[in-house]
Computed example of a mutant assay.
Amino acid sequence: MRILHVTPTYYPNVGGIEAVIRNMCRELRERGHDVAVAHLETGLSQGQDRDEECDFPIYRIPLLGHRLLGLAPGLRKIAKEYDILHVHDPQLMAITGSVLLYARIMPRVLSSHGFYGHTKNLSQFKALHQKLAFPRLLKSYHSVLAASKSDFAHASLYADNIELFENGINVAAFAPQQPLSEKDLHRWIYWGRISQNKRPDLLVDLVKACADRGHNIHLTITGRPFDDMQSTLKARLADLDMPDHFDLRPPMDDAALKATMAQAGVFASASEYEGFGLTFIEAMAAGLGIICRDAEPMSEFANSSGAGIAVDFRDVDRAAAQVCDFLDQHANTISASARRFAAKYNWSDKICDLERVYDSALSAHNTPSSTKRS
């Protein structure tokens, strides 16, 4: 089967969508499929390169206009070379618009990635779009793969072609290299975007409140600055003057990140919203417990795994008390519970379901399916 993943972002950009697409492509290639990525974004030059890690082509296609209201005419020629499009468009705007205009007759499925609830920006525009265009655009896909139960519940209000397909990870890639008993639950790490909606400033406040209760937490924060949160965070750390408790670092490569994770016992995030929460599952695969906001899907990971706790960051003192009690009571079980829970999200076990979705879409469009393994 020839599968083209259409996305508004891809490496060298780094984030959850990029990781999900790369893992999907890796697993599909191993099962004999021909895969590629079409990266549609403003400022790109038309061209082609290659994902060196996973060995498949990346088509760079300029998006003319804006990421919300833009067109990518370069998609037309490339899309015709594939059997099916797997579209990754949480906004259901420019990317989906280009797919409908330039590849309308092709079978296609959509991954939700949290839709557009990650921030409150353009809230009035989003509300209008959701009322007028959202249902029709959802129905233009054969299947909408909801990345979380909250995405499924939301999209099901507008269309009936929704199915739950939670993302996966390469579990083996995050397996800890040391005995689980050596995990230090007082060493925390956050990795990801350092942005307003991720709220790393609240993590700093939580560490301070835990320290006031006698728990000497050390928090490493690493990631790519996305807005002015980096300067806010630096100012807050300077005011606290607690250098033994905090380490703010630039983005790490995979080797450095895994080395830092190996010394940590907890992944902590105060993120306001996650479409799926990929980093939480990655952390749990490494044997880390999780501390998160009391909001789905993060809270579901914490509560159902036995390896984490979800707290209300609006009351940091109460949150600190809950966190300290949790770490004291579950110190001997967190790592094992985390790995056991993460194992359910292994891509190698999920990819058959993805193939089934593709086959169904191809059949609905009377397109021969070439799912035989090479």
Score class of each variant (00 low, 15 high):
18 E>K: 02
20 V>Q: 05
21 I>V: 13
22 R>A: 06
44 L>C: 08
47 G>M: 08
47 G>C: 09
48 Q>V: 12
54 C>E: 08
59 Y>V: 00
60 R>M: 01
63 L>N: 03
63 L>E: 01
66 H>Q: 12
66 H>T: 15
69 L>D: 12
79 A>S: 14
83 D>P: 08
98 S>N: 04
101 L>S: 08
103 A>L: 01
105 I>G: 14
109 V>A: 02
112 S>K: 01
113 H>R: 09
118 H>V: 10
119 T>C: 11
120 K>D: 12
120 K>V: 06
120 K>I: 07
121 N>V: 12
130 Q>N: 15
139 K>T: 11
140 S>T: 09
140 S>H: 07
149 K>P: 11
152 F>P: 00
153 A>T: 14
157 L>W: 08
162 I>R: 05
163 E>T: 13
169 I>C: 01
173 A>K: 07
185 L>D: 02
188 W>Q: 06
193 R>I: 08
198 K>S: 00
200 P>Q: 07
205 D>N: 14
213 R>Q: 15
215 H>Y: 12
217 I>E: 09
218 H>K: 13
224 R>F: 06
230 Q>R: 11
232 T>C: 13
241 D>N: 15
245 H>Q: 13
250 P>Q: 02
250 P>D: 02
253 D>S: 08
258 K>W: 09
261 M>E: 05
271 S>G: 13
278 L>G: 04
286 A>F: 01
294 D>G: 03
294 D>A: 10
297 P>G: 02
298 M>C: 07
298 M>S: 08
300 E>W: 06
301 F>H: 00
302 A>P: 04
302 A>S: 06
308 G>M: 07
311 V>S: 03
322 Q>S: 13
327 L>Q: 02
331 A>L: 04
334 I>N: 12
344 K>A: 15
349 D>Q: 13
349 D>H: 09
359 D>S: 14
362 L>V: 02
370 S>K: 12
372 K>E: 15
